[in-house]
């Protein structure tokens, strides 16, 4: 795989993979650091990030947030992203981990 393609793959703990734009995924400083070639992580070489502590459903929401955040970067009065209530705590912990 090319060293810096436009898309990166995020793989959840239950082996769901999400292919998202690099610019969107890099909204998360944690993901950005992992994918930075200068840091020399394996993730940067393969353009793939594995999350052993985030399951597929939560990671899907996280990807949705990536795009939502990028799209509404300079918009005013943005409606809040909606998600199921039972996922709140898991999302909260994932957000804490990803620093978003």
């Amino acid at each position: 795989m090319a060293a810096s393609s436009d898309y990166v793959t995020l793989i959840s703990s239950d082996e769901f993979s999400f292919i998202v734009q690099r610019s969107s995924a890099c909204i998360s400083p944690a993901v950005k650091r992992m994918l930075d070639p200068s840091n020399g992580f394996l993730e940067a070489k393969t353009n793939t990030v594995r999350f052993d502590n985030i399951n597929g459903m939560v990671l899907e929401k996280v990807c949705e947030y990536f795009y939502y955040s990028e799209k509404n970067e300079n918009a005013r009065d943005v409606t809040d992203l909606d998600f199921p209530t039972e996922m709140c705590l898991e999302l909260l912990m994932a957000a804490d981990y990803l620093d978003i």
Partner: peptide, 24 residues
């Protein structure tokens, strides 16, 4: 120098926390 979220959308952390606050 490198802001975590350089835009006006609330962070996912904040959104999740607010939802948690509202429902539980």
């Amino acid at each position: 120098t490198s802001p975590s979220t350089p835009n006006r959308t609330p962070s996912l952390f904040e959104l999740a926390l607010r939802s948690l606050q509202g429902t539980h």
